Amino acid sequence: MTEVLIDCASWNCRGLRTLVKIKQVTSRIKNLKAKIVFLQETHMLDSETNRMKRRWPGQIFSAPYSSNSRGVMIMIHKSIPFQVEHVLKDSNGRFLIIQGNLLSTRLNLINIYGPNEDNPNFYSNLFLKISDLQGKCIIAGDLNCALNQQKDKSSGMDNTHNRTRKVIKQFMKELNLSDIWRDQNPTKLQYSCWSGTHKAYSRIDYFLV
């Protein structure tokens, strides 16, 4: 059995509308040496993906919504022997599923940009789709929900997404998905987002594998 180690990155880039922002994002990805990249809030239409393709040596898939909101993208470096079989795009620009094979492994790449509001139905419907997939899953993205109320919010308890949190945790258990960063950092307090409204830091960006 061949073992392949691949650096992955996930980033809510909050818009790729300007050339300056595109250059900043692609430069950062290059410095990270990431080979599979999950981007959220691209604000980039399908007709505009060539602006990224000119700067990325590999495959690019996107599920756009509009030029000023949502949109997710998955980029796979040409050095990764990933054979794509099927692409499922959300018309609302909130998720993108790439099904394929990496050498002898059946693999699903799933990018999520979750709703800001407490919306358990979105995750129920999405995870039902994921449960039908064959093979292993790498789920990445901005869930807009802190899964651990004590450790993932600088303000402590978070009661704003209780129903969403419950649904995500339920499906994580049923599908044997792990919050890989938390598994490796069980007590560490580190955050990925600042909310000016709530004056608090949170970790709402995850890799579930």
Rank of each mutant, 00 (worst) to 15 (best):
G100N: 01
G100D: 03
L103Y: 15
L103A: 11
T105I: 10
R106Y: 10
R106D: 05
L107N: 04
N108S: 09
L109Q: 03
L109M: 08
I110S: 00
I110H: 00
N111Q: 07
I112T: 02
I112Y: 02
N116S: 15
N116E: 12
E117A: 14
E117F: 15
E117T: 12
D118W: 05
P120A: 11
N121H: 10
F122D: 07
F122W: 09
Y123G: 04
S124H: 12
S124N: 12
L126R: 04
L126I: 02
L126V: 01
L126N: 00
L126F: 02
F127L: 06
L128R: 12
L128S: 10
L128P: 00
L128G: 04
K129N: 11
L133P: 04
Q134Y: 15
Q134L: 15
G135K: 06
G135F: 01
G135Y: 02
K136T: 12
C137Q: 09
C137L: 14
I138P: 00
I138E: 02
I139G: 01
A140T: 00
A140E: 04
A140W: 01
G141N: 03
D142Q: 01
L143W: 08
C145G: 00
C145K: 00
L147Q: 02
N148K: 03
N148P: 05
Q149H: 14
Q149S: 14
Q150Y: 13
K151S: 13
K151V: 11
K151G: 13
K151P: 00
K151F: 11
K151H: 12
D152I: 00
D152E: 07
K153G: 01
K153I: 03
S154Q: 05
S155Q: 06
S155W: 05
M157W: 13
D158V: 01
D158Y: 02
D158T: 02
N159R: 09
H161M: 11
H161K: 10
N162Q: 11
T164P: 04
R165C: 02
R165M: 04
R165Q: 07
K166Q: 14
K166W: 13
V167N: 01
V167A: 06
V167R: 02
V167Y: 01
I168Q: 01
K169V: 09
Q170F: 11
F171C: 08
M172F: 06
K173R: 13
E174S: 13
L175F: 07
L175H: 06
L175R: 06
N176P: 11
L177S: 07
L177N: 05
S178K: 14
D179P: 15
D179Y: 08
D179H: 08
W181F: 07
W181Y: 10
W181N: 01
R182I: 05
R182S: 09
D183G: 07
D183T: 10
N185F: 11
N185K: 14
N185T: 07
N185Y: 13
T187H: 14
K188D: 07
L189E: 09
L189N: 15
Q190C: 15
Q190S: 13
S192T: 11
S192Y: 10
S192H: 09
C193S: 14
W194F: 12
W194V: 05
W194R: 06
W194S: 07
G196K: 03
H198N: 15
H198Q: 14
H198G: 05
K199D: 08
Y201I: 04
S202D: 04
